[in-house]
Design a protein around this nucleic acid. Structure first.
Lengths: 327, 327
DNA sequence: TTGAAAGCGCTAACAC
DNA sequence: GTGTTAGCGCTTTCAA
């Protein structure tokens, strides 16, 4: 591989001039530029990004920390982040934290040793001050971290209210809320929305904690349904749990939506694959990822951020797990 | 941030000794080691991996090129790769190629400028010789690339045969094969398996090309079913297309598995989320990713490979889209 | 507009 | 066992 010195020699100029040319910084004469360009072509020269990084102490890597890429929500996010990163010349490093603070810390540590440019964090196993003490840019995605960190999230509470009302309007009297894990921001917010929607009504409710996993949702819902046959509505705080609930209903020969109505949250692609398709509160997952990526890159490049806290709107998408008509 | 010179000074030794200590290479006396260790603690020293890379021309990054992380097969793969990478001290760079040769080439190019250690490639938009000309290690995953490249794949053909026979044994007389895109290795192999299973039988068959996308599978199958009401079996070459087929069947009020039996391929988590759950040919996706990652890391580290071409066994998993009993 | 040269922080050959 | 020192390939001051 040719290096900058080879190019300089070939072009008959100094390495400094080549460097300036490469970075479009400082003056480079017409003739020099032309000769350098030629030399680059001839030698098929590609700058060593590692050497550059050593000088500048900057890379074009961004770290994406997710709990588990296997959870259908995150691939769509990752896709968006990667797309945007690519257009700005960054590449993304994938980190599965499993919600484990040590793993997360490990990644943050070792990637900093590699001069990673910044992180997008979709999990907050660590305390806020951990992040604030870092010297490199971070944006929090789908997890509100209090403090000054830039943040992008969805209208979780609002969405949950809309979803719950949708159930109520369609005649549900006994609804269970499959809340996500305690302490997980969006899960807490969605629960809050559910509660707001349901208070001051005569609806019977039950709140059950349930991880965002299909099989545990299925199991829990089956048990709940068996325990209380009057249940006629389920507000699930993710599509995966909604799908689990749907499966449980089928196993018990309940007709959805006639006997039981279900609403999910997220609008991951799974939600149209079930039969019937899941009515759900759609997040614009791609947009969330894209916005977060742009915010991160801006702060890496010291550009001003219009907003530090952005909320992406949600929208109800009606499919087959709720009745088509209000009652 | 402290650097190696600071540590050397603090410990009263030379940088070379510190370097030897760090890399456990060459001799370092007991006392020196102790002093160095102390200095490292005191200064909270972390070596700059970038500087190290510039010297060694090696990083601990591995690139994972997938067509689209959003396709449910790949997150599981990515997860496995990442897990293994982590245990060996590597981190993974995620690249979505969209099956686009230019994008793939772009990644390969720019990541080489970053001294990436190797690639796992789950797509072969490029000609085999493209890869062979590269100087850095590559392993092909789920895509056979002819030539000397290390490769891990599934028993696609065998699996397809088993799956098709499963359908035949359960009485299917008119089966359509939803083959994946032409030219995609596993899709071609699965088709070959289907054909082998079906030849010399009196089964009526139809082969339809269909991308691995839910909605196109749904559309295609609906049309096929409408066009030929005698169809009683579908061999889908991925779970996603099987799910699409199932949805189409439901839309036409066909009972699965009584009127129509469906079998998928992959055993992604989606396959247990539909109702009924998909009977499918299970690949051990995690294992595929893990084996590929280990192979890559071995070749990066110049360790010998026991096998250059490994095939992971598949296994039929019966769920609800085929009849429980043979006929 | 250009070049010389001093870093960036580490590794490794070589000498002691 | 340990230290000196010349790279690795680039950026960036400073002087010309």
């Amino acid at each position: 591989m040719a290096n900058i010195r080879d190019v300089a020699k070939e072009a008959g100029v100094s390495v400094a001039t080549v460097s300036r040319y490469l970075n479009k910084k400082g003056y480079v004469g017409q003739k020099s530029a032309a000769k350098i360009e030629q030399a680059i072509q001839k030698l098929n020269y590609k700058p060593s990004l590692v050497a550059r990084s050593l000088s500048t102490k900057q890379t074009h890597y961004i770290g994406l920390i997710v709990p588990d890429i296997t959870n259908p929500f995150f691939p769509e996010l990752a896709r968006a982040v990667e797309d945007i990163a690519l257009t700005y010349g960054y590449t993304v490093v994938l980190c599965n934290s499993d919600g484990n603070p040590e793993k997360e810390l490990h990644y943050i540590d070792t990637l900093q040793q590699k001069y990673i440019a910044g992180f997008i964090i979709t999990t907050s196993s660590l305390d806020a001050h951990h992040y604030e003490n870092l010297t490199i840019p971070i944006v929090a995605l789908d997890r509100k971290i209090e403090g000054p960190l830039p943040t992008v999230s969805s209208q979780n509470k609002e969405g949950a209210k809309v979803g719950t009302n949708h159930l109520i309007e369609r005649g549900c009297k006994n609804v269970i809320c499959l809340r996500g894990p305690k302490g997980v921001g969006p899960a807490d917010e969605r629960l809050a929305g559910f509660i707001e929607a349901v208070q001051d009504t005569s609806i019977q409710t039950e709140i059950i904690e349930c991880s965002f996993q299909f099989d545990v949702a299925e199991r829990i819902v089956k048990k709940a349904l068996l325990g209380n046959p009057k249940i006629d509505g389920i507000f699930a705080s993710s599509d995966v749990s909604a799908a689990g609930a749907l499966k449980a209903a089928h196993a018990l020969d309940l007709h959805v939506p006639n006997d039981l109505q279900i609403i999910g949250f997220d609008n991951v692609s799974l939600s149209e694959m079930t039969t019937p398709g899941l009515t759900t509160i759609a997040q614009d997952i791609y947009k969330m990822g894209a916005v977060a990526a742009r915010m991160l890159i801006k702060t890496i490049e010291n550009l001003p951020l219009e907003e530090k806290k952005v909320q992406i709107p949600v929208e109800l998408i009606q499919r087959g797990t709720t009745r088509s008509e209000k009652i």
